[in-house]
Design a protein around this nucleic acid. Structure first.
Length: 270
DNA sequence: CCGGACTCCTGGGTGC
DNA sequence: TGCACCCAGGAGTCCG
């Protein structure tokens, strides 16, 4: 489910309610996520949350009792609920705060994770090899061009590789390539620097707009308050096979590229 | 190094 | 109503 805009939306929603809050209690009902939830995760009780950061699609929670990571996988969500809010199926973890509210982790498919981050979170094995932040200064078309030389795989798979750039998942890869006029199947190594500069700008634009709209809710994404995002209605091609291309009116095509459904306009994208 | 296949898991939608 | 089947927003791991 969540790509960078959804994770950032979640972070912005929950951070103000967590920072400087004391943790009263930690309840792990289902420890079997992508990796087991640490058996000593409840040692957070009594600690104060200092900050909530993000790197790619990972959330990083800072506390004196230890920093921890959370990834939402395909179907995860984190929201703040009242302490008396009834539990739903797949509400796996509750972190009860001094405010009386609970930070509640929900994840039907359990592809997400909650792990200790170690001394330096950015050096954690899951984070250390991540590429640049798409909304940061290190991300550029020239960087994409350099990294793509010699690569024969489809540009869409290249763009979704977290070593290339973080946070661009299946929805926003399709959307960015459409805006940039690049066919998703084109070999990454056969795209000019000029076109990569355009693509980088389109990635920034799409992710920026999606964050402004509170993310994309296809089925079940909810923000920190349990509300859906509104970017789904702004999607130009994703999920719109057979509908008219917003640029030229041609029918949007769907094709599997790199094991993932991909959407594009066969005329506007080359 | 690269690229593709496979894997974890549950649930929604569809078609019979 | 039941059931089989396909598909889903991620990404680590393994293998050639």
């Amino acid at each position: 489910m969540p790509e960078l805009p959804e994770v950032e939306t979640t972070r912005r929603g929950i951070a103000p309610h967590l920072e400087q809050q004391r943790i009263e209690r930690v309840t792990v009902r289902q420890p079997r996520l992508r990796y087991p939830v640490p058996a000593d995760f409840d040692r957070l009780a009594g600690a104060t949350i200092d900050a909530v950061k993000r790197r790619g699609k990972y959330l990083i929670f800072k506390s004196a009792a230890g920093d921890w990571l959370c990834h939402l996988g395909m179907s995860g969500s984190l929201r703040l609920v009242g302490g008396g809010e009834p539990l739903k199926k797949h509400d796996h973890i509750d972190i009860a705060l001094a405010s009386g509210r609970h930070l509640r982790y929900h994840d039907p498919r359990r592809f997400g994770l909650v792990l200790w981050a170690g001394e330096e979170p950015l050096d954690h094995p899951l984070l250390v090899k991540l590429g640049p932040e798409p909304l940061g200064d290190a991300f550029s078309g020239d960087d994409l061009y350099r990294r793509s030389r010699g690569r024969k795989g489809a540009v869409k798979a290249f763009l979704m590789d977290s070593a290339t750039v973080v946070g661009v998942g299946n929805i926003y890869a399709s959307e960015s390539l459409f805006l940039a006029g690049i066919h998703p199947s084109r070999p990454a190594g056969r795209i000019s620097a000029e076109r990569y500069r355009r693509l980088a700008e389109c990635v920034r634009q799409v992710l920026g707009e999606a964050i402004e709209q509170g993310g994309t809710t296809l089925r079940d994404f909810v923000n920190g308050d349990g509300q859906p995002g509104y970017f789904a209605q702004r999607l130009r091609v994703y999920g719109r096979a057979g509908q008219a291309c917003p640029g030229c009116g041609e029918a949007i095509r769907q094709r599997v590229i790199g094991q993932r459904a991909s959407y594009f306009c066969p005329l506007c994208q080359r």
